[in-house]
């Protein structure tokens, strides 16, 4: 049996929910593939995984997998995930969000989850647009591009999700593209295994909304753009800042040991118990 068939049978709700709802060629399906390959590599049992999402095209991912799943409200996936993790630290909680989901309405939750370095995995499908609701600009829409809410071009600067996550204090941050799908397997695996907040930003394409409004062509054309514009972290180190202008740096951007929220919280519980006993309580 081909490897991919084994993975489909094991991890996807193949007999109920396929073909999936995403448009032909949408990058989100490629990310779902990378996610199940990564989970397979970690060796975790399906019942130990919780996949949490918000609302958006990317937010539909939990529908298709055979893990514990939670499809929450727009922008709040990380808050639900934080609750799950603190209630049952043995679960591996993975959060899938869109760029609008994670950076606009959920932006505050994102920076604070990173600051706490809470042990969660956050995968962000960055397609530079609100795909599901019809192509409105998001905080990651680059300056000068068009959106239904920016017909005379977008005048704001974009958020750089990975750089924001590094600065905010996430223990692990990696960026990939759907074109470089094998790299994603490794990044997602590392983020899941990381004790601490693990972020994987995936540069994806929404050719149907963003691509169409900006005349970027088909899904294939947009993946060629990813291929031609990505540089690895290693190569980027040898390039001048002006050469890196407009390029996507892919690979592991940070991987560091920082205090983890859950560990610190356990210490608080110990201190509280000691405090109580010294009071004779």
């Amino acid at each position: 049996m081909p490897e991919v068939t084994r993975l489909i049978y094991k991890y996807l709700r193949h007999d109920k929910k396929f073909p999936h709802v995403w448009c032909p060629g949408c990058g989100t399906g490629i990310i779902l593939g990378a996610l199940i390959r990564a989970i397979d590599r970690t060796g975790y049992e399906k019942d130990d995984i919780v996949l949490v999402s918000g609302i958006g095209c990317s937010g539909r991912m939990p529908v298709y997998v055979d893990f514990n799943t939670l499809h929450t409200t727009h922008g709040r996936a990380l808050t639900f995930a934080t609750g799950i993790k603190l209630a049952n630290p043995n679960l591996n909680v993975i959060v899938i969000m869109g760029d609008g989901d994670a950076m606009a309405i959920g932006g505050n939750h994102f920076i604070h989850a990173a600051r706490r370095n809470i042990e969660l995995t956050a995968i962000i499908v960055n397609n530079s647009i609100y795909g599901m609701t019809g192509g409105q600009y998001s905080p990651t829409t680059p300056y000068g591009m068009k959106a239904t809410t920016a017909p005379y071009i977008h005048i704001e600067q974009e958020f750089k999700i990975s750089e924001l996550a590094v600065t905010a204090g996430a223990g692990f941050v990696g960026r990939g593209t759907v074109y470089h799908a094998k790299l994603l397997d490794g990044l997602i695996e590392k983020a899941i295994l990381k004790k601490g907040f693990g972020v994987v930003e995936v540069i994806s394409h929404c050719h149907v909304q963003y691509g169409k409004q900006n005349r970027l062509g088909s899904a294939v054309d947009m993946m060629k753009w990813q291929r031609d514009n990505a540089v690895t972290v290693q190569r980027a180190k040898r390039m001048k800042p002006e050469e890196l202008e407009g390029r996507i740096i892919i690979g592991v951007l940070t991987d560091k040991e920082l205090p983890i929220y859950q560990d610190e919280y356990d210490k608080v519980k110990e201190r509280a118990k000691e405090g109580l006993s010294s009071l004779g309580g």
């Binding site: 081909p2 991919v4 068939t5 032909p24 990058g27 399906g29 490629i30 074109y179």
Partner: peptide
């Protein structure tokens, strides 16, 4: 295996 890895729809398999 690149075709199956990049297929967004899990529709192609290589044995």
């Amino acid at each position: 295996g690149w075709c199956e890895i990049r297929c967004p729809d899990f529709a192609i398999t290589v044995e």
